[in-house]
Amino acid sequence: MNAFLWVVQALLAALFLLSGSLKSTWPKDRLIASGQTGVTPFPLPLLRFAAVCELFAAAGLILPRAAGIAPVLTPIAAVGLCCVMAGAISSHCYLLRRDVAAGRGRREAVNVVATTVILGMCVLVAVGRS
């Protein structure tokens, strides 16, 4: 189980390191064009704040437990990412409802499912490392 949790932590850390890096450097329209459509309803300063949170959480998923210093921070980082992903699911559901009303919506349905899977991985790490 320990090795499986490490794999999940590494995948999540890589994902949030990439996402946080893009959100902290790219303009909003480029993020949307790249597939991060969930950022659409939010102002850029909030996206930059979320990016910083994602970068710190990515480090928190790996470094405390790997260094053996304050390993309690790993499940805390995972819980923080659960909050971020709950917000992302909410955003994608809002966009899905809007797109369905306009006769579109396939892309957002995939994003809701993918974001829910990522949330599940965060919950797994939070519970598994508690």
Rank of each mutant, 00 (worst) to 15 (best):
P71C: 02
L73D: 05
R107I: 02
A70F: 07
N2P: 08
V84L: 10
L55D: 11
C82A: 07
G60F: 14
D29N: 06
Q36V: 12
V84D: 04
R30C: 05
V39K: 13
G120Y: 12
F56Q: 11
L73F: 06
G35A: 08
A101Q: 02
L61R: 13
F56A: 15
I69V: 12
V52T: 10
N111I: 04
A51V: 02
L5V: 10
L55F: 14
L18G: 08
M121K: 14
S24R: 10
Y94K: 09
Q9M: 12
C93V: 02
L55K: 15
T116I: 04
L124F: 13
S130T: 00
C82W: 05
G80H: 07
A66E: 11
L95V: 09
Q9V: 07
A59C: 13
F42G: 08
V123F: 10
R48H: 07
L15M: 12
V125W: 09
R106D: 01
L119K: 13
T116P: 04
F49W: 08
G128F: 04
A50V: 05
A77V: 03
C53A: 15
A51W: 03
P41Y: 12
A14I: 03
R65S: 07
C83N: 01
L5D: 10
S130C: 01
N2D: 14
L47E: 14
A77P: 06
T40F: 10
V100N: 00
A109D: 06
F4D: 10
F4K: 15
L124Y: 13
S24I: 04
V8G: 00
V112P: 04
L63H: 10
R97D: 01
F49R: 03
A114T: 03
L5A: 11
L18Y: 08
N2K: 13
V39H: 11
V39I: 12
C83Q: 01
A102L: 02
F56S: 14
G128H: 10
P75Y: 03
V100K: 03
F4L: 15
L96W: 04
V84T: 05
G87K: 04
S90P: 04
S130V: 03
P75A: 02
L15F: 12
G128E: 06
V39F: 15
R129P: 03
E54Q: 11
V125S: 04
P27E: 13
P41G: 07
R106E: 07
A66H: 12
A78N: 05
L73A: 03
